[in-house]
Amino acid sequence: MTEQLGLVVLDHVNKWYGQTQALKDINLSIARGEVVVVIGPSGSGKSTLCRTINRLETINEGTITLDGRPLPAEGKALAALRADVGMVFQSFNLFAHKTVLENVTLGPIKVRGLDKAAAEKKARELLDRVGVAGHAEKYPAQLSGGQQQRVAIARALAMDPEVMLFDEPTSALDPEMIKEVLDVMVGLAKQGMTMVVVTHEMGFARTAADRVVFMADGAIVEEAAPEQFFTNPSTDRAKDFLGKVLQH
């Protein structure tokens, strides 16, 4: 059997912000359909890692490939690659001057070249799937955080991405809104979407992750199946972290 190549592969990735090293020799391979949850303390580089995968952050050393293709530098090729990588941000970042429906159709129409009717049909299906179909004509500011984040997920899904990146998708939400967003994400995971999720939601990691990646100080300290990681972490750094976050 030939070696299964990952859909997303980070190979010896290093990144510095001036003197500080944000990413230290990151090696990570994410298989198609896999859900990888990245956890770790603040400033451990997990968001940076997530953002390098669609090159919102550049790297100084190493390579990142998507489906065997290295990430292109700036330009049309990079834009084309980003269209295949969905991104969900902590602060939602819905286009403030566009309605919910327009937020979801803008990419398919302008980037994929879909006609308006087809894009709107698809958008309404997606909005229905994430449970905000009734808000299609509203503007983002008229929606709650949880609703906005679900629209953001629909906007990313409308591009038919090969992989979805979630950069702390629930960190800006009220507790009662976290569940509605996580439910959508669990649903996506069950349908086989390849996902990289940076989060502090340990419950989500336990239920939806195929693999937990624990980062500290810019390096991957430990990688394990969720059950093993949460019940029997192998490194002291992970034990210390879990001791702090799980004691309540």
Binding site: E74, R82, A83, S91, V111, R155, A156
Partner: peptide, 16 residues
């Protein structure tokens, strides 16, 4: 305009 607006646009594959 918050940088997140441009990042979101780039993330769905828009050119500069």
């Amino acid at each position: 305009i918050p940088i997140g607006q441009a990042e979101a646009a780039r993330s769905i594959g828009m050119t500069f």
